[in-house]
Write a protein that binds this DNA or RNA. Structure first.
Lengths: 143, 143
DNA sequence: CTACGAATTCAAGTCAGCTTGAGGTCAAGC
DNA sequence: GCTTGACCTCAAGCTGACTTGAATTCGTAG
């Protein structure tokens, strides 16, 4: 079994075929041929989809993710650019950790009003002050 | 200075007034009164906005975030529910860490094709196999 | 007391990321 | 060789998260 058809990829990735076609349209993945009409993919595609899922979880848009692999499918970014992205991820990881700790604290702290609990406030205030780091021209935030 | 008007909150949070009004409409924040037409907020609002930003970074929708604070503004979730959310965050943190490590690896590894680099593949394959963990009826991912 | 500037409302528009539906096409099983 | 079922294309629709624009309302400075 050297090629997977779209149903196998859908099965293996958990994504519906419509999404796979959509991703292909955007250039995120590519089919290696057809069997009749059915798209055929190489097994590697599943890995690529994992990578895409990770990128999404990190808040990259699909277009940004597409830009990370060159047309070749290989990640094609400069070394400093890569490190910059890794740095941003590190920051984001710290933020999620803050949120996680705050949530665990709320689960345990008996204070009636968390907003007034100093521990809670301190936890939240650890979140990065990145308000100047607006992304592109008028979009969402985060991720 | 006990109350902030919308301009101060916008300034302090980095969000445009339109977004603050939108959040208010969704019930995420609430103004404490008006000065003429101008909305007035309590300083606490800034903290709440930080919390909202964290929630967004974690991939919660605005409605989900709204549901986390009861009408009172206090987080109103059961303890197990809170721990479950914290667990999901932990999982997500691991995933971002995987991505971060993979990116750092790509930045350093001299292999011509990362997709074939065993180290890279191993890193990616560490990502959770959560394909069955579909969220609500047909939506995004992350973010 | 008038002019100004900033905030307001409400409806409509935008963008990303998919999904849905109508109408058509295969390849495989019987 | 015909039916069937999964896939195809293409256009249109949908949701979430905001933004934009027109018409209006105030408080404050002069």
């Amino acid at each position: 079994m050297k090629v997977l058809d779209i149903a196998d990829v859908a099965e293996g990735s958990g994504l519906p075929p419509s999404t796979l076609r959509y991703y292909e349209e955007l250039g995120l993945i590519s089919s290696i041929g057809r069997h009749g009409l059915r798209r055929q993919y190489e097994p590697e595609t599943l890995m690529k989809l994992s990578l895409i899922a990770l990128g999404k979880a990190a808040g990259y848009s699909l277009v940004e993710i597409a830009g990370m692999f060159g047309k070749t499918g290989e990640p094609e970014l400069s070394r400093p650019d890569l490190h910059a992205r890794a740095d941003r991820l590190e920051h984001q990881i710290r933020e999620l950790t803050v949120l996680k700790n705050a949530i665990r604290h709320v689960a345990e702290c008996p204070a009636p009003s968390h907003m007034e609990c100093p521990t809670f406030r301190r936890l939240i205030s650890l979140a990065g002050k990145r308000q100047l780091a607006r992304r592109n021209t008028g979009r969402r935030g985060s991720r």
